[in-house]
Amino acid sequence: MTNINSLSIVVPVFNEEDNLPLLFGEINKALSSLDKEWQVIFVDDGSSDNSLQVIRSMGEEHPEVKYIAFAENCGQSAAFKAGFDAATTDVVITIDADLQNDPADIPALLREYERGYTMVIGWRQKRQDTLQKKVASKIGNAIRNKLSRETVKDTGCSLKVMDTKMVQKIPMLTGMHRFLPTLMKMQGATVSEVPVNHRHRQHGESKYGILDRAKATFLDLLAIRWMQSRHFRYSIKDRNL
C-alpha cells in the first residue's frame, strides 16, 4: 500500500479562459473532502486570450492555485514538463483544461494508486467525441500500442496519476506526453487503468487537427521504439560511496 499525503494537479493551458474557473471549481469540489494537501499548477503555454489573467485572479483568491507562464507557445509536452519540475508533492496528476476530463474521477484514481501502483491512467470507455475523432483515436491507439509494444486501452486520456520523482526523470521531448505510460514503465513504473468519465467540450475549440497529430505521432513512435531499444537499467550489488 502507498500513502499519498500531497498532490499537484498539472494543467497545460492554451486559450481556455472560459473553462478555467469551472475547472478549478470542480477540482476544489473533488479534493476538498480528501485529507491531503493539494495544489493546482496551471502552465500557460503562451495563450493569446485572457487565460493568464484569469489564472492570476484565481491565484489571488485561492492559495491552492499556482501558475507558470511561458513567454511563447512551446507545446503541451513542454507545459507538462514545467509542471512536473515545479512539483514537490508525492504525486502529480495531469488533466486537460477543456473540461472533457472529469475531476470527480480523481479520488478513484488516487485510491487505485494507493493500492501500490506508481502510475494510474484514465480509460475513457464512453467517448463524447465526433465519429471521426472516435475512429481516428481507435486506429491511432492500436497503431501506438503495436509499435510501442503496449497494451494501454486509452493512450490519449490526459487524466493520469504518477509518482513525482519518477516522472521528473523522464526525458520529455516534444510529443512525448502522448507516451507517458511507456516512458514511466521504462523507469520501472507499475501501471493500472481505471474507467473514467468523458464529456463534451463546453467552451473554446480543440487545439489540434487529426491529420497533423497523426503525422507527428508516427514520428514520435519511431523515437519511442529507438529509446526502448537503447534503454537500460542496472542494479548495484555492492558499493563503497
Rank of each mutant, 00 (worst) to 15 (best):
V161D: 01
L110F: 07
P107I: 11
L173V: 13
M166D: 04
V135K: 13
P181S: 03
M186P: 08
R144Y: 00
R144G: 06
R149A: 04
T190N: 11
K134L: 11
L110Y: 05
P195K: 06
A142Q: 12
V152F: 04
R149P: 00
I121F: 00
R115H: 13
R149S: 05
Q187R: 14
P171M: 00
D102M: 04
V152R: 04
V152H: 05
R124H: 02
S158K: 01
V120C: 04
P103T: 05
T174A: 13
L180I: 14
K165F: 02
L147P: 01
S137R: 15
I170G: 06
G156P: 00
I139Y: 13
V194T: 09
E112Q: 14
Q132V: 12
D105G: 01
R111C: 05
A142L: 12
M186R: 11
L183I: 10
H177L: 00
T151K: 03
R127N: 09
W123K: 09
V196N: 04
V120D: 05
P195N: 07
G188I: 12
L110D: 02
T164N: 11
L147M: 12
R111K: 15
K133F: 12
E114H: 07
G188M: 11
K146R: 11
L180F: 06
C157H: 02
T130E: 10
K160R: 13
Y113Q: 10
L180W: 00
I139E: 04
K185E: 15
D102S: 13
K126N: 15
A189R: 07
L183W: 09
D154M: 03
G116P: 10
Y113W: 05
L109F: 12
M172T: 07
T130V: 07
K146L: 15
I143C: 03
E114Q: 15
P103K: 06
K134A: 11
R124I: 03
Q132F: 11
M184Q: 11
Y113I: 05
D105Q: 06
V161H: 03
K185W: 01
N141H: 06
K133Q: 13
Y113C: 10
T130G: 15
A136K: 11
M162S: 05
M176Q: 05
V135A: 15
E193R: 03
V135H: 08
I139D: 05
K160E: 07
K126F: 07
R124C: 01
Q132W: 12
N141Y: 02
D154Q: 03
R201A: 08
A104H: 11
R199C: 07
T155W: 02
K138Y: 06
K138D: 11
I143H: 00
